[in-house]
Amino acid sequence: MLNAILVVGAVVGALQAIRAKRLLVSALWLAGCSAMVSILFYAMDAREMAVIELSVGAGLVTVLFVFAISIAGEDTSDVRAFVPKPLAWLLVLISIGLLGWMIIPTIGAPIPGVEPSFSEILWQQRGLDVIVQSGLMFAGIVGLLGLLADAKVPAKETAAQKQAATSIPPPPKALSQSPAIREEAHV
């Protein structure tokens, strides 16, 4: 019963996050949805994932949203959607029907066999994936820094700099004073 309430709460939270007019309210509904999903993870014995979802999904991502909204500002202008809402609901119902048609027959009995621990799977069996994830996080941080940096306008070249760039540079002093060059000048 508690799990059913949590599932309904997560779906309602997600729907409110989509429907809310204010972006900040939308971010807070999303955080609530993440918290409920993390409790559902815990109910399915996925304890590590529950902790990660609660700290990253409900914590870090919400902070990121609030940060982005505080910079970009609330854009509450009520604009018409690209797709009419009845058509959108129809498309969603068709998609859910197809998804359910694919998922429900695959639910079967548990596969026998002893399962290794989470850390063994993550660090040994999927070690390469962890390295790729680290690279992905690094790329994300670099991309974020690049995107958040203010665009620098190149400084205009002064007239003197332009003239210096186009004129022939004078010969070096050491060469012009060498005896070989002086002899050539006499000839």
Partner: peptide, 24 residues
């Protein structure tokens, strides 16, 4: 119950992608 939750969240996410015009 989890299958219902999966279908619900996926449906709401798809609906949001279809009707939203705001980048955030």
């Amino acid at each position: 119950i989890m299958v219902v939750g999966v279908l619900g969240l996926a449906g709401v996410g798809m609906y949001g992608l279809l009707i939203s015009r705001n980048l955030i």
